[in-house]
Design a protein around this nucleic acid. Structure first.
Lengths: 355, 355
DNA sequence: ACGCATCATGTAACCGGTTACGGTGTGAAC
DNA sequence: GTTCACACCGTAACCGGTTACATGATGCGT
């Protein structure tokens, strides 16, 4: 409401002129650099208020060589899984005054490269979750000079820090539990073929079936992590006369679709067949009967990755902590005949909810 | 693996030197500005590949005066509501090559100002959702020079474009439906006091009760949109002997907590008491009995806001389209004795799901 | 053969901050 | 009253791109 009139925001030059000092002094005053007299600083501050000046972060990041922003690149933004990850990341980022730049590779491998390239000059570090990329390809895309932490991806040959879930052990444990409950014929609904999580879970299942159940070629139905593919598996199961007394879906979403499909066909859960999932999405405990699953603290996945990245940015070296593997926990609920059911579901979030 | 060695990425100057041309030419070649010979362009491109140069977006945005980024400021990142909004925004943003910078005001009013200020110089436009801010305050925080679209907020006196949900009509319609189903004593669980959505919903409820039910002071219980506060309402209802044959919660989350609480107390839904919510979060259809609610296409809220912002950024003027109001649709399900129940729930997403 | 329009290219000034460096003023010490 | 130290402040270069303008080369018509 003063000064320039037409054009945009006030610049540091404007502030300096208004306060009757040089740009250098203005800059120092604003950033609290010490070598400025109290009255001078006050004058600058008055000018800042008057023109309501806000430093242009783009310009600032040019010289400072840091942006106070980290890029987050996810394969998709669908469902509670990602929203929980982002929330976990934001929690930590916010504490350290960092901003989040969201990139989305929308499934396509080609877009992944674009998403990563587009981050240059915008971020100080990267959090990337590339569930169906081969390590070699990934290495090509990444800029070695840009600190990067992998989300939910065991870096393997690459020596990049990562935080992952022990999908193998989780699947193994769940299969074991199913067998312990008396199941003989356990069927697995797999995730997308290229997805590394899915493959590890399938491997864990198959190994457990072989070692504990003594079954060499357990039945495995195709799936793609979507609810619909769970429903489809239900149809295959019923029509195909595939004998099964338990079904272990590679994720909760598919388990949800599966249960709906089974109900439609008149099958009772867990009476006729037990059902188990993986992830423990919030929805799981609200189903009726409630869904047995492997609990992954999804938000922690995001927050620990962010914490690792912050430490790297601070110049710390994280040594052994550079590979973090979270072990999921078995949650036995209604669909495997466990104790709990919907009536005793506990409210999970006390604050921060919205319409 | 060439050239500089120690330092960071290649700059335009490096590329120019490598290709034996000036920076101007290099820039023109890279941006496809036409007035460059084919051989020259080729030479530049070779240099680009060799040094694997990626333009520094920070520097570029300084002169171009655009960042290809929009800021999204949300009150929180909890639950499916926000994840759906972000997904809707991203969908549109991605199509136009825009990036998303996430800001989070974490509830605090003070942080809101900080979040908005921090966006200066980083974004071309803003999408803001300030559910419990007074319009005057909001006006103070916002930079009039920065194109801004309000999310889920009827701008009222401010002449800012916005997209909102007709909370009043929605609540009115739901209350009407409850009464039509034979309810006499309908209780409302309100949202946070300062929240504008919550207040509108409460007003719609009260008006419907007065005009249709002939009830002047309907019972209203406090709530804060959280599941826990729904459960608390259930306790009040049961212990307080508050007579009720229907409860209308201001959002789905509270309805979920309410249902769990009622079940615990041995009340049957909808037998003893009907329950209705608002929003139609994905969880709603999976409950048993499934939850009757007002369907807001949450993702559309985000995507239409983003589309409006894009049009503003393109210089179009959106006239009457500057105020978009989405009318929610009544979805009658099990908790009001409606037709559908869990067994017929339909899978909702066929693709893009994840662990 | 000459002038002129046309086009590719180079030079340098910007965008809006930060910061190395040099200049000025004050006080104290002699 | 000089000199020196020191704290404060201003000038200007720089970050890495973009782009107005100047320059030189080329083609064309006559």
């Amino acid at each position: 409401m003063e000064g320039k009139g037409t054009s945009g925001m006030a610049t540091l030059r404007d502030v300096a002129r208004e306060a009757g000092v040089s740009v250098a002094t203005a800059s120092r005053a604003i950033n609290g650099l010490g070598n400025v007299t109290a009255p001078t600083r006050a004058a600058v501050m008055v000018a800042v208020k008057k023109l309501n000046f806000v430093p242009h972060s783009g310009a600032r990041s040019l010289t400072r060589r840091k942006t106070d922003t980290v890029g987050v690149i996810l394969p998709d933004l669908f469902g509670e899984f990602f929203s929980e990850i982002i929330r976990g990341i934001d929690l930590v980022a916010h504490e350290s005054g960092m901003h989040l730049l969201l990139g989305n590779m929308h499934g396509s491998t080609h877009e992944t490269a674009a998403a990563i390239a587009a981050m240059r000059g915008r971020v100080d570090g990267l959090l990337v979750m590339p569930p169906d990329l081969k390590p070699e390809l990934l290495a090509d895309y990444l800029d070695p000079a840009l600190p990067t932490v992998l989300l939910n991806y065991d870096a393997g040959p690459l020596d990049l820090p990562f935080v992952a879930v022990d999908n193998y052990r989780g699947a193994y444990a769940m299969t074991e539990a199913l067998l312990a409950r008396g199941a003989r014929q356990v069927v697995h609904i797999a995730g997308p073929k290229h997805n590394r999580d899915a493959r590890e879970r399938q491997r864990g299942f198959a190994d457990a079936m072989a070692k504990i159940g003594g079954v060499r070629n357990p039945a495995i139905l195709p799936g793609d992590f979507s609810e619909e593919s769970g429903a489809q598996a239900a149809r295959l199961l019923v029509q195909g006369q595939l004998p099964a007394d338990a079904v272990f879906a590679a994720n909760d979403q598919m388990a949800v679709g599966l249960i709906a499909g089974l109900a439609e066909a008149g099958k009772s859960v867990p009476g006729d067949v037990m059902v188990a999932g993986f992830d423990d999405i919030p929805l799981a405990r609200h189903l009726n009967p409630s869904l047995s699953t492997m609990q992954v603290h999804i938000d922690r996945l995001g927050s620990t990755a962010m914490m690792m990245l912050l430490r790297i940015l601070r110049g710390e070296t994280l040594g052994a902590a550079s590979a973090t593997i979270l072990t999921p926990e078995l949650i036995a609920r209604g669909t495997t005949g466990g104790a709990a059911n919907n009536a005793t579901a506990q409210p999970q979030s006390a604050v921060g909810a919205h319409p």
